[in-house]
Simulated scan of single mutants.
Amino acid sequence: MIPRHEIPRTARARAFVSFAAGAGGRLLHLAALLTGETPGSTPYARRLLTAALSRTYADWDALRGDDPYDRTRQDLVARYARAAWHRRLGAARRAQDPGPLGPLTPHQRVAVVLRVYEGVPEEQAAALLGLPVERVRALTARATVRLAGPGGAPGAPEPAR
């Protein structure tokens, strides 16, 4: 029998496990698009997702009606953007990246993934990235042109429906 003081904790854990089981696959795909790793081998994407899910679990009780998917996605994107900035993922990294979004800079990659794959409005993407709406619009436009041009992405992500 579960002690009375443990019941809320187990209900919380069950709710989170249910969320993670339902959204984990899509979130991992999102992380893989951001990191540029191939679907079969995603160690960096998995580390980012694990950290983002850990933060979501820690804040689970404080969500109070907020969408846990949005919260996890925000944390995941912020962690990727912060790491990309600190590691200065430049031309050498993009040249090594065989993924469909390989030719993009980290900011362009985040903008395209949020706007095209996830269907996030420009205003929300701008707020998430801490950039003006016009900058997000420009990043998305440049990335789209770069992907559609010669040598673009044959397997680029499909738009959100």
Rank of each mutant, 00 (worst) to 15 (best):
P3V: 00
P3I: 01
R12F: 06
A13L: 12
V17T: 15
V17R: 15
S18C: 11
S18F: 12
F19W: 13
F19R: 08
F19M: 11
G22R: 12
H29I: 12
H29S: 13
L30D: 10
A31M: 10
L33Q: 07
L34E: 00
T35K: 06
E37K: 03
G40C: 09
T42C: 11
P43I: 09
R46M: 04
L49F: 05
T50S: 14
L53I: 03
W60P: 01
D61G: 03
R64Y: 11
P68R: 04
P68N: 13
D70V: 03
T72F: 01
Q74D: 15
V77R: 06
Y80E: 07
A81Y: 13
A81K: 08
R87A: 11
R87Q: 15
A91E: 13
A92V: 11
A92R: 09
R94T: 03
A95L: 10
Q96C: 02
P98D: 07
G99W: 06
P100Y: 05
P100F: 02
P103H: 03
V112T: 00
V112A: 00
R115P: 02
Y117I: 01
E118D: 14
E122R: 12
E122L: 15
E123Y: 09
Q124L: 14
G130A: 05
A138E: 00
L139F: 11
T140D: 04
A141R: 09
T144Q: 00
T144F: 03
R146H: 08
L147C: 14
L147M: 14
G149L: 02
P150I: 04
P150T: 10
G151Y: 05
P154R: 13
P154G: 08
A156K: 08
E158H: 14
P159W: 13
